[in-house]
């Protein structure tokens, strides 16, 4: 049995009666961290789409950086959720036997859609030409790695490159509503809890989305500033 002495310490300060769940009044800091991370993902992706879809030329140097930031934070976003579970080894039950009325279970599908269909596909199409070039230039393990990443598609004729660019643009157009879905859905997970009057609001997805856009763009700005302090990599983000 885990140490419960801190609860007895807290009980001294309780006036009146308490509910059985009063020791679980807060959903813990990890649950706060997780919407923060998915917000950074959605915000960074929206910054990337500014360049691709809306042709905002000023943010062009941050395009790839924004995509990679989104991918990096997307991959670690479930970690706080996982470590918050009381039985982390049973997490796969959410994916294998999801309960369809549960907002949390359906988030698994939203997450997988965004990760597999939007982020990974867009990054692969964007980097495919580079993967082919790098796999020809490098040696040893790096060569093997880049060859695997091309997935066997080594055609870099002008026609193939044009197809890549068209694909990236299409995925970005699908990706903007998907990014809104991703983080709006996180807002819905909280907004659908009627028991908590501070959460149960239809505005929760909107609040989450706006904070996501602000924090995601701020994160890419910060990483861009810091990465430009490393001299040899200065020009890399401009290549696209």
């Amino acid at each position: 049995m885990p140490d419960q002495s801190h609860l007895y310490e807290a009980l001294k300060h309780v006036v009146g009666y308490i509910y059985p769940n009063d020791i679980e009044a807060h959903w813990s800091i990890l649950i706060v961290l997780y919407p923060y991370l998915t917000g950074l993902v959605a915000g960074a992706f929206i910054l990337a789409s500014l360049e691709r879809v809306f042709n905002v030329r000023e943010v062009r140097p941050t395009y790839r950086l924004a995509l990679l930031t989104a991918l990096a934070f997307m991959l670690i976003a479930p970690l706080p959720l996982l470590s918050h579970l009381a039985k982390p080894l049973r997490f796969w039950e959410i994916l294998v036997t999801p309960h369809l009325t549960s907002a949390m279970a359906m988030f698994g599908f939203v997450y997988m859609w965004y990760l597999m269909v939007v982020l990974l596909l867009e990054i692969w199409f964007d980097y495919r030409r580079d993967f082919v070039v790098w796999s020809r230039e490098s040696k040893g393990f790096k060569k093997f790695l880049y060859s695997v990443l091309t997935l066997g598609v080594t055609d870099i004729s002008e026609k193939a490159i044009r197809f890549d660019e068209a694909a990236v643009k299409t995925i970005t157009i699908i990706g903007i509503p998907s990014a809104f879905l991703l983080h709006g859905y996180v807002g819905f997970i909280f907004g659908s809890i009627k028991a908590n009057p501070w959460w149960s609001s239809v505005l929760m997805p909107v609040i989450f989305l706006f904070s996501a856009i602000v924090s995601g763009i701020a994160l890419v700005m910060l990483i861009y500033l810091l990465s430009n302090k490393i001299p040899p990599r200065q020009a890399e983000h401009g290549v696209s």
């Binding site: 509910y19 769940n21 959720l81 918050h84 579970l85 039985k87 009627k194 028991a195």
Partner: peptide, 18 residues
Amino acid sequence: YCIGCRYCIQACPYGTRF
């Protein structure tokens, strides 16, 4: 079967879950 995500604890309007 419970994975301990505590979503139900937040969702119960009567505060009877723990």
